[in-house]
Design a protein around this nucleic acid. Structure first.
Lengths: 218, 218
DNA sequence: GTGTGTTCGTTAGAAGTTATAACTCGAACG
DNA sequence: CGTTCGAGTTATAACTTCTAACGAACACAC
């Protein structure tokens, strides 16, 4: 895959160890959430003593940022792959849910409670807008189905005037609106489900989600 | 308000100090999120030394749980008050947004990323269902407007069979569905806005929110 | 007014954490 | 084969939560 020939043995070893550290980090995060991640614990698990990890990550924050980056990348890959294999918007939504349920804490690393001061590095926001691009693609085609109902007219004209976030994507105002709704509505259900706010309520979150997908794709 | 006569001086002092501790805790949480809350820092701020706080809270977890409880209560009061003063569902939605924007971290204490192991005490879940009750009330009246569109029929029949979460509230299946949508859709927009996922996108989240309210109330 | 307790706040300390500094040793490379 | 670079070590500082033991102040009963 990557130009393996040019790697020195040390680089190989280094990359491998970084990967193992992240591996353990994911386990800890899955078990106790991001605040429960401990560099020291990872080091002990790997049979080495604390400060050794600082050879591989500048600190806890850098490790977490790296994990957030990976989570974003994983999500972007999932969405892109689903779209590339001809999935309709509903299919994209289902892929999103499968991805989220596979590792709730990974979802929360992307869309969960932010640390007030934190500002995401540029490459992460780039991945975020890549995801948005796929959504905009998917929101486009819906033929000339729904008439521009008066209800949404105001929002669509507002979005038409503020389409910076779409970059140079040629999405129609209706598509801008649909992509946004797709995002916010599915996130609304998913995040509540993953946070456990539906547990004990009795109904099946999948039914609610499928209903929203039906609604979103008209 | 409270039966002040029967309070001993010590109880008064104790209650006051507990309140001040929570006050400082809110400041810290607003500034650095829940993980940034430090008992020690609070103690120092109040001019007393670390372990003194353990007279008032069993530990960090109990303090946070108490803050979560207060946040829930504050939200329930806000929603109930809005409903009591004759607000329609849209008004409830706006009250929710105002409450959330007033202190984003407080919102996240209620609806943010959960700690995997954490299980909310019963009285907190009781407040949660109190909130749901107000939502169910508000979702009820909408006259005989929308016909039971085939799109939502499946979800509504599912909800009709799983209405444990409504307690003994006499909400119609349509009301169950509407209350759920009200919750998930507004939370979807709000949580993304509060987490800063809309910053830099250019559009006004209020427009998106208002559109959703319009949509929700038909 | 003078005991008597309860409770408050203190210091000391254990067991963690992140992170830095200084040092050793081994492996890669010229 | 030697030199250098880097990995991992220990020691330390500055934090954190939280327990334990102590002293002192305060409310209350007598």
């Amino acid at each position: 895959m990557t130009a393996a020939g040019k790697e020195t043995p040390r680089e190989r070893y280094r990359a491998q160890l970084r990967a193992e550290i992240k591996e353990r980090a994911w386990e800890q995060i899955a078990a106790a959430g991001a605040p429960g991640l401990s560099l020291n614990a990872i080091a002990k698990q790997m049979g080495m003593s604390g400060p050794a990890l600082y050879r591989y990550f500048a600190g806890r924050d850098e490790l977490i940022t790296e994990l957030i980056r990976d989570a974003y990348r994983s999500l972007a890959d999932t969405i892109r792959t689903a779209a590339a294999s001809g999935a309709d918007p509903a299919g994209l939504g289902r892929a999103l849910r499968v991805w989220a349920l596979a590792d709730p804490q990974r979802y929360f690393l992307v869309y969960g409670t932010p640390v007030p001061g934190y500002r995401a590095p540029d490459d992460i926001t780039a991945i975020a807008s890549e995801i948005m691009n796929v959504l905009l693609d998917a929101a486009q085609p819906t033929a000339g189905s729904a008439p521009p109902a008066a209800e949404v007219a105001r929002l669509e004209s507002h979005l038409a005037e503020h389409r910076e976030w779409a970059g140079d994507h040629p999405a129609s105002p209706a598509a801008l609106r649909r992509a946004l709704h797709f995002w916010t509505r599915l996130h609304g259900i998913l995040s509540l489900e993953l946070a456990g706010h539906f547990t004990g309520m009795g109904f099946d979150p999948a039914e609610l989600y499928e209903n929203e997908l039906r609604h979103l794709t008209q």
